[in-house]
Design a protein around this nucleic acid. Structure first.
Lengths: 179, 179
DNA sequence: CGTGGAGTTGAATACGATCAACACCGGTGG
DNA sequence: CCACCGGTGTTGATCGTATTCAACTCCACG
């Protein structure tokens, strides 16, 4: 059991839950949503836009934390859905408990690093979405998350990359032909 | 002077600096870069992609913090340039100093909130870049950062939004015609 | 067997990028 | 005072990439 899990489970308000594949843990419009630690399984969060189209914001395999941070920080109803892509065991917790005073200095710095690394990944994602053509985004994705293509359907990868599923299909056949 | 500024200035390694418009505080390739607090003025960070094209990652007016967090967290050379768009006064600091043990519990939680809100804004930005057409992105931008259009040239706003400057020009004339 | 979700492929379309020409303004220097 | 210049922004024509629409295959699962 990880250090992070220890901290979460000693918190009185943390709750441990199990879900089935396809279960929705959080819906758009929900109030007072909390971050979700993934102990086992795989989750995704996604937005449904004004035209009814899904856009996957992130995937969360084991050890990751997922949730609608914008909604939590600004006390708005959630914009994101959180769904289980596999049967999953998760811990729902309060965001403050990663920084409570009872933690050691080292632990605080470690949890701070968690947030900074998340910012770092988002930075990369933003720069990719702005500057990089679809094919390069896909190549980066499979290099960075080599296990995910085996666990999530391709149309969801397309949604994560911000491209149409047919486009990803075409890109993949291009890569297969050329190399 | 803000609470945040107090903390930064009591740190022995924080350094106060003044820059002129056009000065580069950080370049791509720089090692051991640090976060930059903007006391006065306006900064931008940007990437130059493989085709030589600029993509603005963020603007930082007074009170904001800017830097290449991905590079800092993963100990890589910087990918981003940081440039002054106006004459600016800044504080260069160490990222850990926002979470050092000597701070009060409340202060730690406040600085944690700083990071979470940054994540929240990035979340919004990612979802916008994926799902939203150029015109809606622009409308959101001027609503969210009403002071920036007066302080930065329009081609930089276009670069921030991930669209060509000519496209933004066309969008603006559409808005002017229709409403 | 059927049925529905997933993936592929192709044709037509749309949105934004690129290229190019021009207007405008502020500063500089003759 | 004016001529020149670079940076900025606008507009229109053309091009390219990705979307949309549609038909089809392939499986997994009832």
């Amino acid at each position: 059991m990880s250090n992070l899990e220890d901290i979460l489970l000693t918190s009185p308000k943390a709750t441990y839950k199990s879900y089935q594949k396809g279960d929705l843990i959080q819906r758009a419009g929900d109030l007072n949503t909390v971050p979700i630690y993934v102990k086992q399984g795989l989750l995704r969060s996604y937005l449904i836009d004004s035209k009814g189209k899904e856009h996957i914001y992130m995937f969360a395999p084991e050890g990751w934390i997922i949730g609608d941070i914008e909604a939590m920080e600004y006390h708005q109803p959630a914009a994101l859905y959180v769904e289980c892509l596999e049967a999953s065991e998760v811990i729902l917790f309060e965001k403050d408990c990663l920084f409570k005073a009872s933690l050691s200095k080292d632990q605080i710095l470690e949890n701070k690093q968690l947030l900074l690394r998340r910012i770092g990944r988002l930075q990369r994602r933003v720069l990719m979405l702005m500057g990089t053509p679809a094919i390069d985004r896909y190549q980066y994705f499979i290099k960075t998350y080599p296990e995910l293509p085996n666990r999530v359907p391709q149309h969801m990868i397309a949604s994560f990359l911000g491209i149409a599923p047919q486009t990803l299909s075409t890109i993949r056949s291009q890569i297969a032909r050329n190399g």
